[in-house]
Simulated scan of single mutants.
Amino acid sequence: MDKHINLIKLSVGTDDVENLIDWQRLPQAQTADGLPRHVTRMWPKREAEILNGGSIYWVIKGVIQCRQRVLRLDQVIGQDGIRRCAIVLDPELHRTNQALRRPFQGWRYLKPEDSPADLPATRDAEDPLPADLSAALAEIGVL
């Protein structure tokens, strides 16, 4: 299998996975072709590895809760004339096993072996745990 790398990013102001989905459906969070995107200041140096099967893992309320496959990186020039990177995402979110993460700025690389596994599809229909309970269980290693 070819080498890939993932990204990890805080979803600031997001309460749960459904809230992230709702945000990504807004026109300002989408590309011209209707795909969700996240615009960031820094362009990943490991672009080829990200585009070789990488995903972005979303940290919501201090816990990794889901991921999306990265489809491409688009250049975006802001009104201030500064070049930025739009991380264009597959609209399908995959819920993952939950893992605690301390706050950090921007995004970070996440090795595949350090990335939480996807939850089985049968668990997608379950009601999610409250964020504080989920974080507490992840902290003691139950999730």
Results as ranks from 00 to 15, higher is better:
1 M>E: 07
3 K>H: 02
3 K>G: 04
6 N>I: 02
7 L>V: 13
7 L>R: 02
9 K>Q: 14
9 K>C: 10
9 K>M: 13
10 L>V: 05
12 V>L: 06
13 G>D: 04
14 T>N: 03
14 T>C: 11
14 T>K: 07
14 T>M: 15
15 D>L: 09
15 D>Q: 15
16 D>H: 12
16 D>T: 05
18 E>W: 01
19 N>Y: 04
19 N>K: 14
19 N>P: 00
20 L>C: 02
20 L>M: 05
21 I>S: 01
21 I>Y: 01
21 I>R: 15
22 D>I: 03
24 Q>Y: 13
25 R>Q: 12
26 L>C: 04
26 L>V: 07
27 P>E: 11
27 P>N: 14
30 Q>D: 01
31 T>E: 05
32 A>E: 15
33 D>A: 15
33 D>I: 12
34 G>F: 06
34 G>D: 14
34 G>R: 10
39 V>E: 03
39 V>L: 00
40 T>Y: 01
41 R>E: 12
42 M>L: 04
42 M>R: 13
43 W>M: 11
43 W>G: 01
46 R>F: 10
47 E>K: 10
48 A>Y: 01
48 A>M: 00
50 I>F: 08
50 I>C: 12
52 N>K: 06
52 N>Y: 00
54 G>L: 01
54 G>H: 06
55 S>V: 00
58 W>A: 03
59 V>Q: 03
59 V>Y: 04
60 I>R: 05
61 K>M: 08
61 K>Y: 04
63 V>K: 05
64 I>D: 02
65 Q>R: 12
65 Q>E: 14
66 C>R: 11
68 Q>S: 11
68 Q>K: 01
69 R>E: 13
70 V>F: 01
72 R>P: 03
73 L>M: 11
74 D>L: 00
74 D>E: 15
78 G>D: 03
78 G>R: 10
78 G>F: 07
78 G>W: 04
81 G>Q: 05
84 R>P: 05
86 A>S: 10
88 V>F: 00
88 V>H: 00
88 V>R: 02
90 D>C: 12
93 L>W: 04
93 L>V: 12
95 R>M: 04
95 R>L: 10
97 N>E: 15
97 N>I: 11
98 Q>F: 03
98 Q>P: 09
99 A>L: 13
99 A>D: 03
101 R>L: 09
101 R>V: 09
101 R>A: 13
102 R>N: 10
102 R>H: 00
104 F>C: 09
104 F>H: 08
106 G>M: 01
107 W>P: 08
107 W>S: 02
109 Y>D: 05
110 L>S: 08
110 L>T: 02
111 K>A: 15
111 K>I: 02
113 E>T: 11
115 S>G: 13
117 A>R: 13
117 A>N: 13
119 L>N: 09
122 T>H: 07
123 R>Q: 15
124 D>H: 13
124 D>Y: 14
124 D>V: 04
126 E>Q: 09
126 E>S: 00
126 E>T: 00
127 D>N: 09
128 P>W: 00
128 P>T: 08
128 P>K: 04
128 P>Y: 05
129 L>I: 06
129 L>V: 03
130 P>V: 02
133 L>R: 08
133 L>M: 12
134 S>N: 11
135 A>L: 13
136 A>R: 14
136 A>L: 01
139 E>H: 01
139 E>G: 08
140 I>V: 10
142 V>K: 10
